[in-house]
């Protein structure tokens, strides 16, 4: 449904600032009806990719096709079938909920009975029914986001792009927003590409793409990604992180990594962690502040993947499987 082919984007430099490569040779595909999360540290090129995908910027090189249309040659065709939820709300805060929906209807050519039935449908899952005449600025963050999503879904998009849509929401509103999004995505068979930092959001999606420095580092199902770093890991906090890591490597031959103030032993087979933990405690007890066994989550995958140097040929996982 979305095919990104060898995309490169270089921001022009000026006398003081050198040109900067935001995306370099990125290829990625999203299949029809798939829910994909795009993730990466700040400055990884996510936002640039998002701007290109919603047609606001043109890349230096490469092609993007959405639903079979060339995004750069036929942007108008793509706009008709695409819905976009931006990080900063694209609603007019000084207008009421109803007025915002009406403008959106006008922009997408909905009118009369069709507009009314679509609006009803779009509002059915929200808590906005009795707030239609309220100005958006007076709504809570969670409700304002609902306006945004209701507005975008009113036009029945085939492809939905979301840029960190849950930023600034409390955990309950975030959960509600995502539940609604997942339910509607399934019911309508929408293709969804969402950028996000929050890995609690990523566990029930189809695939997760992780970017760094404009390159795709990993792209697979959450399960496969978690399997990448072994099934369990031992995480230590020590008085002297680097020192202990060096000793573990030298004296016990363990492949540990230092990430922040933690020492991690990632690729541990199931069942081996506990004996290992005991062994480490036996030998280094005075050095250790805390030690635990952890089931890897997607945030661990993220840390694992993005904290190592970018290799020329990405990771050992199968990047060939990115076609849609």
């Amino acid at each position: 449904m979305i095919t990104i082919d060898d995309l490169t984007h270089i921001y022009p430099g000026s006398r003081k600032v050198p040109a900067r490569t935001a995306i370099s040779g990125l290829s990625l595909g999203v299949r029809e009806g798939e829910f994909v999360i795009l993730s990466g540290p700040n400055g990884s090129g996510k936002s640039t990719l998002f701007r290109i995908l919603c047609g606001l910027a043109l890349p230096s090189l490469g092609r993007v096709s959405i639903a079979g249309f060339d995004l750069f040659a036929q942007p108008a065709k793509v706009r008709e079938i695409m819905g976009v939820v931006f990080q900063s709300p694209a609603v007019d805060k000084h207008l009421s909920v109803a007025e915002n929906l009406a403008i959106h209807g006008d922009l997408y050519g909905l009118s009369g009975a069709e507009y009314r039935s679509r609006r009803e449908e779009a509002l059915s899952w929200t808590d906005l029914a009795d707030r239609l005449d309220q100005q958006v600025s007076t709504l809570s963050g969670g409700l304002a986001r609902q306006v945004e999503l209701a507005k975008v879904l009113m036009t029945n998009p085939k492809v939905l792009l979301l840029d960190e849509p849950t930023t600034g929401l409390d955990p309950v509103s975030r959960r509600n927003f995502l539940d609604a999004l997942h339910r509607l995505q399934k019911a309508r068979g929408m293709t969804v590409l969402m950028t996000s930092h929050v890995f609690a959001e990523a566990d029930d999606v189809d695939r997760v793409a992780i970017m760094r420095e404009g390159k795709l580092l990993a792209y697979d199902s959450p399960k496969a990604l978690k399997a990448m770093i072994g099934t369990e890991m031992v995480v230590l906090q020590a008085k002297d992180t680097e020192g202990l890591a060096a000793r573990l490597r030298a004296e016990m031959g363990l492949a540990v990594r230092c990430i922040g103030d933690e020492v991690r032993l990632e690729e541990t087979e199931n069942g081996e962690s506990l004996p290992l933990l005991e062994k480490i405690l036996d030998r280094y007890r005075p050095e250790v502040l805390s030690i635990s066994i952890k089931q890897p989550g997607l945030d661990d995958v993220f840390v694992h993947v993005t904290s190592r140097a970018v290799p020329d040929h990405a990771l050992a996982i199968d990047l060939k499987r990115t076609g849609s």
Binding site: C54, G55, L56, A76, R79, E80, M82, V84, F86, S88, P89, A90, V91, D92, K93, H104, L107, Y108, G109
Partner: peptide, 13 residues
């Protein structure tokens, strides 16, 4: 700045 414009720009208008 408020974000309204981007919503209009991505619309098929």
């Amino acid at each position: 700045d408020a974000g309204f414009l981007q919503g209009v720009l991505v619309a098929p208008v």
